[in-house]
Nucleic acid binder design. Structure first.
Length: 307
DNA sequence: ACCCAGGACTGAT
DNA sequence: ATCAGTCATGGG
């Protein structure tokens, strides 16, 4: 078996856990664009963070194994949503051949319940970035501002820490124009202008209103935070990929359908756990090259030439 | 060189 | 209220 460098401080007490996790697909779950700080190890396990604690996870038969300092059964279970009645959730899905195909592609895909602050930062940084680049930014922020936990291991910096940074230092983490957004957002959270703890207690619509008050957070980013951090499974984020799959499969690839119509369709069609439906569709069209029919050829738009 | 990326913000209608 | 332009940066 391959030897990875020591995960943590050897003095730290390691907790080893085994949880029942029938059907969980770590690969799909951890690479489906909802989390950005997990890496596959040389021996096929996964190294990442649960509630700000470093850990290593892998599947052993139907059991999810987790090793790391300070881990608890409840924390790991909650993080991977192992308490969720998945059979009942999927029973609420509409009879929809596209959704059934998407779910068949990765039936073990699950939605995580991540730490809100880091999820907020990740998705502020997500706009006009590819997933690999969001992962890179997350790593840069940890290296530049996080506490060193071990060899190459840095915790994600909290809001107070980023609020003490400068926009230029954030920009050095390849943030581009998002540096200003993240810097302002960090101060909004550090000053309690917006409370991520209180948002957890609010109904989804009010929680969304609070999130959108944060700089760099619009409807889509707010929805991702609600779904991937606060466990609001009724939230259906529509990004460029989901926009594309909805148009192509449910609106005859029409480019004229407005966003609000896609929104109304998604909210009424996919049922009370439509966030899961959204994640299956998103993962499917990104990973299965045969998922979508080739784009209809639209006549090339006449482009104005610079004169 | 060109187009795209899990968008948000701004200012002009 | 709607709508185009703009915002940095890296990958393909």
């Amino acid at each position: 078996m391959a030897f990875d460098p020591p995960l943590f401080d050897p003095d730290a007490s390691q907790i080893s856990l085994s949880l029942m996790a029938r059907g969980l697909d770590l690969e799909a779950t951890l690479t489906s664009g909802q989390t950005f700080s997990w890496k596959r190890t040389a021996d096929g396990r996964w190294r990442g963070w649960i509630d700000r604690r470093p850990c290593l996870v892998w599947l052993q038969g139907d059991a999810l194994r987790a090793v790391g300092p300070g881990l608890t059964h409840d924390a790991v279970s909650a993080y991977f949503s192992l308490d969720l009645p998945v059979r009942e959730i999927f029973a609420t899905f509409p009879s929809d051949p596209w959704l059934e195909r998407a779910r068949a592609f990765a039936p073990g895909l699950r939605i995580l319940r991540q730490e809100p602050w880091e999820t907020l930062c990740n998705f502020i940084c997500s706009s006009l970035k590819q997933i690999v680049q969001i992962e890179q930014i997350n790593h840069e922020l940890r290296s530049a501002f996080g506490d060193k936990i071990g060899e190459g291991l840095h915790s994600f910096p909290d809001a107070a820490r980023l609020a003490l940074a400068t926009e230029a230092k954030l920009r050095a983490c390849k943030l581009g124009f998002r540096a200003r957004h993240l810097f302002v957002a960090a101060r909004q959270i550090a000053s309690s202008e917006v409370s991520l703890e209180r948002i957890a207690t609010l109904p989804t619509a009010e929680a969304r209103e609070q999130l959108i008050r944060i700089r760099g957070v619009g409807e889509k980013v707010a929805n991702c935070i609600l779904l991937f951090a606060y466990g609001r499974a009724e939230v259906f984020p529509i990004d460029v990929w989901v926009d594309r799959v909805l148009r192509q499969l449910y609106f005859n690839n029409s480019q004229r359908v407005k966003h609000e119509r896609l929104r109304a369709f998604a909210d009424s069609h996919f049922g009370p756990y439509r966030g899961y439906a959204q994640q299956f569709l998103f993962h499917w069209i990104r990973k299965d090259p045969t998922a979508l029919p080739p784009e209809k050829v639209v006549p090339p738009r006449v482009r104005k030439k610079a004169e």
